[in-house]
Design a binder for these strands. Structure first.
Length: 235
DNA sequence: AACCAGGACGTGA
DNA sequence: TCACGTCATGGT
């Protein structure tokens, strides 16, 4: 039991399952929580359920770059209300209409271009699972976005590292502040693979872990000085 | 009223 | 390779 897995268990004990990635069109068992947790699917790991939901994760992953997810939801709902939250739907939109729809998420000029670039690639897949290298070759998709797409859109065993992950690990002294993305990703993946007995649990752990870190970091690592009152410090 | 958010790219050194 | 500027709206 290494520290990375210990942190996961503490976070899970504290916050419970997160139901990440949330879906705009979700109408499943947690619908009762609408208004509060609308779109989340806590303890239901049967997602994405179809190609439209895969595409929703991909688009959301691009839109969420350096932006809060709540603003991404606005953009996704704008697209969805135009019945355009699909590859063909977006592709058939007027470019200005697309930009206006995703405006709430910021960087709308770039992101519109990125989404269209992705769509060209996505349609060529014909439902196949993309490789990480293929995703990284697409303009607008860097390491985190690629891992986000693979982990949540395609249920692939790829840990998603974000700014919060790096910040928390740095503050806890588990990694150097100059550590690069790949270094952090490797630490997370190797630690979890080593500590988790049943390997088929890893996917859910990867998915929950990222969401748990975000949830925790929003409370304890969003304002300086970082880590005030963080219960992870005593490990 | 600054400050920064669940990044990625282009550039110059 | 690396540091830095740029992209932009929205919440605090």
């Amino acid at each position: 039991m290494n520290k990375i897995y210990t942190i996961y268990k503490k976070l899970y004990e504290t916050y419970g399952a997160q139901g990440w990635w949330p879906f705009i069109n979700y109408d499943g068992v947690n619908r009762a929580k609408k208004g509060v947790n609308r779109g989340y699917h806590v303890l239901d790991y049967t997602f994405p359920r179809n190609s439209d939901e895969v595409f929703e994760v991909c688009t959301g992953s691009i839109l969420t770059q350096n932006t809060t997810f709540s603003s991404v939801v606005k953009s996704l709902e704008n697209l969805n209300s135009k019945k355009s939250l699909t590859a063909n739907g977006i592709e058939s939109m007027d470019i200005q209409e697309l930009k206006t729809a995703i405006k709430p998420s910021g960087y709308y000029n770039q992101k519109a271009e990125y989404i269209l670039e992705f769509i060209k690639f996505y349609k060529g897949l014909n439902g196949a699972i993309p490789t990480r290298e293929e995703l990284l070759n697409i303009k607008g998709i860097g390491e985190e976005t690629a891992d986000s797409i693979l982990l949540y859109g395609y249920n692939q065993l790829q840990f998603k590292v974000d700014a919060y992950t790096k910040r928390v690990l740095t503050e806890l002294g588990l990694i150097d502040k100059k550590a690069k993305y790949h270094e952090i990703k490797l630490l997370m993946e190797s630690s979890l693979k080593e500590a988790v007995e049943d390997k088929k649990d890893l996917l859910v752990i990867y998915q929950e872990y990222h969401a748990l870190i975000v949830n925790h970091a929003k409370e304890f690592y969003s304002k300086k000085p970082y880590g005030q009152g963080c219960f992870l410090k005593d490990i």
